[in-house]
Design a binder for these strands. Sequence first.
DNA 1: GTAGATGCAAAATGTTTGCTCTAAT
DNA 2: ATTAGAGCAAACATTTTGCATCTAC
Lengths: 150, 150
Amino acid sequence: MELGKNLVEGKVNSFINECKKLGIKVTPQRIAIYKELTNTTDHPSTDEIFKKIRTYYPNISLTTIYRTLETFEKLGLISVVNILYNAARYDANLEPHHHLVCVVCKKVEDFYDNSLANLNIPKEALLDYKLLGYTVQINGICTECRKKET
Amino acid sequence: MELGKNLVEGKVNSFINECKKLGIKVTPQRIAIYKELTNTTDHPSTDEIFKKIRTYYPNISLTTIYRTLETFEKLGLISVVNILYNAARYDANLEPHHHLVCVVCKKVEDFYDNSLANLNIPKEALLDYKLLGYTVQINGICTECRKKET
DNA sequence: GTAGATGCAAAATGTTTGCTCTAAT
DNA sequence: ATTAGAGCAAACATTTTGCATCTAC
C-alpha cells in the first residue's frame, strides 16, 4: 500500500531535518531508504528495500541498506518489527500466554494476565484472516542488561 | 528455569502417546528434543537445544533438531515464538500500533484499536524490565493464502 | 521388510565486518 | 580538510536440501 505523494514528501523533509539535528550526514542513499520505508505499510525486509531501490539507484549496495537501517533504528528514526529475527525460538507450552522480551539480550520470559485473555480483536482482522491466536509482546530491558549499560 | 521432574516425565509420556496417535515414530532424538523444550520456559533456539542435548547425546545432528522442530510445529506439538524469524522487518511508522501476521506468507499488516491502547501490563514486568513498549500480534492466515490451500 | 527418520556434506539465505575510497559537512 | 558514510569482498550465522544409511514399526 502506497501513501500519498505530498504526505511522503513531508515526512522525508522532516526526516532530513531530524538527521541534521542528530548530526548525521544526509546522503542520497539514506533519503532513498527512508523514503522507501515511509512510503509503505508493508514492513519490508532489508532485501526487499534493496531490490526496490536498485530499480532506480542501481549502484546502491546491500551493505549500505543494512548499515543504514541499523543506524536509523539506533537513533529511533525507525523500528524493527521483529526484534527476535536472529533465530527461530521454540515453545512447548501451548497454553495462551504472553511474552516479555529484553531487546538487548533477546531473553524471552512468559507472563500470564487474565485481563489479556480476551482482547477485543477488530472485526476487519477477523473478516480477512482466519484467526489462529494472538500474543502481547512487551519490549523492555531486563535488570541484568540495565546493570551492564554504562 | 527448570520444571519439576515428575511434571516433565508426565509431559514426555503424553508426548509419546501423542506421537503414536499422530502416527509418527518415537525416536530417542525426538524424545530428547521434546524433553529439552518442555523442561524449560526459556524459548531456546535450535542451536541452544542442539548444544544442550549434545552434552549427553553427542552423536545427534543439528539437522535432526531442525527437522524435528519443524515436524513438531506442523503437527501442533510445539509452537514457534517468533514466526517472523526469517529476516528483519522494518517500520518507519513510530505511532503505537499492532500487527496482523499471516503465518503462511509472512505478510504483516498494521491495525489500530483504541481498546488496545492501554493494556494492563503486570507489575512484575514493570519491576524487572525497563518498559519500552508493547504490541499485540495477531496470527492468522490471510485470504489469499487460504484460497491457495487445498 | 518398509517407510520414515537420522546424519553428513554441501548449498542457500541472511547478516556482519574489514578495508579502501568517496562525498557530505 | 576532515570524518562519516558507501561499496566491495570475504566471513559468519542460520536454515535448507540431497542423498545414503539406519531404525522404529
